[in-house]
């Protein structure tokens, strides 16, 4: 049954008991071949990637175990002086956060007055957003205020960023949007 008796090594445990004189059969004579070869799944990971917990700002170290281009485990990094390998419940659930089926994998589009989401290609969506940015910026440019002070901006576009974005991402956001004349760039820190 269930692979066990198919296995040549899976001698009938009663016989093993007899052979070992194990009258009670509480120990390894009752072990199955699977149990005999049980291993931690991380033992055979292709790579272990050092990472940082994405939840709060304590910055606990994480190790991401990858096998066949799939994540098999995420746990604390014992080397970290911040966390010594510990994680809180949220950190411990990171595996579910990043590999969960709740994640959407397509770009979705809701047209004005629409009642449902439509799937559209990523490239199309990017083009559309770039187009909206340009149109809105061009139509709502402020060069000077009433007193002639320089403004050089558009107040018609705003940005709100989460605080789980990388520094590099924030940097490019600030760099691009400021250069576009967008002023209302804000993030979670204000909230």
């Amino acid at each position: 049954m269930d692979g066990e008796t198919n296995n040549a090594a899976g001698l009938w445990p009663v016989l093993r008991q007899l052979a070992k004189g194990d009258i009670l059969g509480l120990g390894d004579s009752a072990a199955s071949p699977r149990t005999g070869s049980l291993e931690a799944r991380t033992t055979h990971a292709d790579k272990v990637v050092a990472s940082v917990c994405p939840y709060c700002a304590v910055g606990c170290g994480q190790l991401v175990y990858v096998k066949d281009k799939k994540i098999i485990d995420i746990e604390g990094d014992p080397r970290s002086p911040l966390s010594h390998g510990c994680l809180c419940p949220k950190g411990a659930a990171t595996f579910q956060l990043v590999t969960g089926s709740h994640r959407v994998s397509h770009v979705l589009y809701r047209r004005p007055y629409g009642t449902k989401w439509e799937t559209i290609p990523l490239e199309t969506a990017m083009d559309m957003v770039a187009d909206r940015v340009k149109k809105t910026r061009d139509a709502n440019w402020e060069d000077k205020d009433k007193k002639g002070n320089p403004l050089r901006r558009t107040m018609a576009i705003a940005h709100l960023g989460g605080a789980t974005l990388d520094n590099e991402e924030n940097y490019l956001i600030k760099k691009l949007f400021t250069s576009l004349g967008i002023v209302q760039i804000e993030n979670q820190a204000r909230i």
Binding site: P54, A57, A163, T164, D166, N170, K174, E186, N187
Partner: peptide, 17 residues
């Protein structure tokens, strides 16, 4: 104590107006 992974970072390299 801040609540988000890089909230300090997002004020250092600010996405703030």
């Amino acid at each position: 104590l801040r609540g988000h992974a890089s909230i300090q970072g997002s004020t250092d390299i600010p996405t703030l107006y």
